[in-house]
């Protein structure tokens, strides 16, 4: 038997390859069971990149569902609140070309906004409370409602259901606490200065 194997190259090759296949199959099978992931980690990573406004502008009922959809191959350019920055980082994560924002789902806004309820007009219908994806509106039936500004993601979802139209989306106030220095313009983008000094002045024209 052994002789047969040794002397017959085809049989020995088959046995060797078959054996290897079995061994690797077993290893892979074991790994698949042992190191099984409950959830696709990429969903979590995508979810971390999404802005968590839960606005549903992407067509999914929240950021996580959209993250799942992206993991399943949906387009990454459906998130207006995240804007191009989010698209870029998603493209980075998924190693694809970064598309531009799909205008169908809305436009990117530079200004962060939050909802404000004009409280004297509020009739206490609780419709906005039901619409708010992050429970950022408090109030009870027939009682005036108000928005917890710190928790509001600016998703816009409460504006539509309001029967008396008393919700405004207002830009977030930027106080001293939010103020920061601007990054200096990149060196390459200061033609005026460069030309001024090219003329040999000491930069006074700058």
């Amino acid at each position: 038997m052994l002789d047969l194997i040794v002397q017959n190259p085809i049989v020995s090759a088959l046995i060797a390859l078959g054996g290897l296949a079995l061994v690797f199959g077993a290893v892979l099978g074991f790994a698949a069971v042992r190191f099984r992931l409950e959830e696709d980690p990429v969903i979590q990573q995508i979810d971390d990149l999404l802005p968590q406004t839960q606005c549903g502008q992407c067509g999914y009922p929240g950021c996580r569902p959209y993250a799942q959809a992206i993991a399943n191959g949906d387009a990454i350019n459906k998130c207006p609140p995240g804007g191009q920055a989010t698209i870029n980082s998603l493209a980075d994560l998924l190693d694809v070309e970064a598309p531009t924002l799909d205008a169908e789902h809305g436009e990117e806004s530079d200004v962060k906004k939050v909802a404000y309820i004009r409280e004297d007009e509020c009739i206490g219908c609780t419709k906005c409370i039901q619409a708010c994806p992050v429970d950022a509106i408090i109030g009870a039936a027939k009682q005036m409602h108000t928005v917890i500004v710190d928790e509001c993601t600016g998703c816009d979802l409460c504006v539509e259901p309001c029967p008396v139209d008393c919700i405004d989306m207002l830009p977030v106030e930027t106080g001293l606490n939010q103020w920061k220095w601007d990054k200096p313009a990149p060196i390459e983008e200061r033609p005026l200065n460069i030309i001024a000094s090219d003329r040999g002045t000491t930069g006074e024209a700058a």
Binding site: D47, P51, Q52, T53, Q54, G62, C63, R64, P133, V134, D135, A136, D150, E151, T153, Q178, W179, K180, W181, D182, K183, P184
Partner: peptide, 26 residues
């Protein structure tokens, strides 16, 4: 500028994490 940006970034990150938690809780 970078310090400010990082601080804002952290604030935003915190806020979005909170939003996520609230959303999930809801």
């Amino acid at each position: 500028a970078s310090k400010g940006a990082i601080r804002l970034h952290q604030q935003e990150k915190e806020k979005s994490d909170r939003a996520r938690r609230r959303f999930e809780f809801r």
